[in-house]
Design a protein around this nucleic acid. Structure first.
Lengths: 201, 201
DNA sequence: TTAATTCCTGAACGTTTGTTCATATGAATG
DNA sequence: CATTCATATGAACAAACGTTCAGGAATTAA
């Protein structure tokens, strides 16, 4: 494993870091674990990343940007607020399932004010997107009159809850489809039949 | 600090452990930190707990039991499913706010299959309670016909999301009241006025 | 072939960790 | 008073940690 292999090394390290950080958390993951998973020496890791923190931050930033881009492209052109919200929920949960619990690694360690600026930025953006959809829905009379900001926070909360559930109670994850249904239709019975049907599809 | 002080020592250690584990996570918290927070020597901690893991497990179990009892007594006699669900949500979120993010400590470390049996038991019980309420609501015609199991998972997911939000984005927590509203009423507009009002209160 | 460059290795260092244990202390008992 | 016993201490230890660095190996350039 020498010379030209260096082209892949950085990527291999990042892949390994994702795996190890996800499984053991920031403190629990050791640089040696990451190195051996990436099939490189400990010293080799420090060739590409100055220290553990930089490696971790690079990883988080990479993932957040990737996710952010995916959200944008997947719902930017959807006009219908109902479809837009549904799409957001579906894609968020699908992404969370695929990329498991890296997101959870954030927050926990360091007294949880770690990559706070990067995260804040990300969350703010996400909130902006949903809030826009909700506001549009209210304005067009499709959604009930409510506090768009609060509803947005609740939706984001539920998404986060899904992520936490993956880690804590993976045998009992809720279905994205049912989640859309509940968020849109609510638990209380509707007397108007047409509405009920709209929700169901 | 000698002799008779031993009466309080165990409790002091547990209090300190809660504080330190919550702030630094399992791996991040050191026995020395806990000891000094409890104003006891390192050796003193090992007088009451065989090791770090036992201390942690004791703590988790204590909290889970406490929370479990509080849930039960607060909604056991409520007949109305709407009020029962609302009570559950309100009390869950209030408890989470008070006891911050100890619950988050679970899952993350140890490759996240740690106190799995204790937790599983706890979650199962919680699910059972909510599912009962939902089923009752459906049967009595107050709730829409839906998959009670799925709805239960979504509600629990949202509760967990709140917990995660406390750690990750504490400036943007949603209000418990609004959460009840959304869960019950949904986002879609209702044509029937009476229903809408029912949700609002 | 030699020199320069790039990539990589792993022993070594200083810290910090969880845990142990010989020792001390002071109230309770006789 | 002396003895007993629960309670508390903190130096000591091995293990693991993040990080450094002198050196080795493979490729490219001369």
């Amino acid at each position: 494993m020498n010379k030209r292999s260096g082209i892949n090394s950085k990527k291999r390290i990042l892949d390994a870091a994702l795996k190890v950080f996800s499984e053991y958390g920031y403190k629990g993951a050791s640089m040696r674990m990451i190195a051996s998973t990436a099939r490189i020496s400990i010293g080799g890791v420090y060739l590409y990343f100055a220290n553990k923190e930089e490696l971790y931050l690079t990883l988080i930033k990479e993932r957040l940007d990737d996710f952010s881009a995916q959200v944008k492209t997947s719902i930017s052109e959807i006009e219908d607020p109902v479809k837009a919200i549904s799409s957001f929920i579906m894609m968020y949960l699908e992404y969370a399932k695929t990329h498991k619990e890296l997101i959870l690694t954030q927050g926990r360690e360091h007294g949880f004010a770690f990559a706070i600026d990067i995260k804040r930025e990300f969350f703010k953006e996400q909130r902006g997107i949903i809030e826009g959809i909700v506001a549009r829905g209210i304005q067009s009379g499709v959604f009930t009159e409510c506090n768009a900001k609060e509803v947005t926070k609740i939706i984001m909360g539920t998404m986060r809850g899904f992520i936490l559930s993956i880690v804590v109670d993976p045998d009992n994850l809720f279905s994205p489809k049912e989640c859309c249904r509940l968020m849109l239709g609510g638990l209380l019975k509707r007397t108007n039949r047409a509405e009920g049907e709209k929700v169901r599809r």
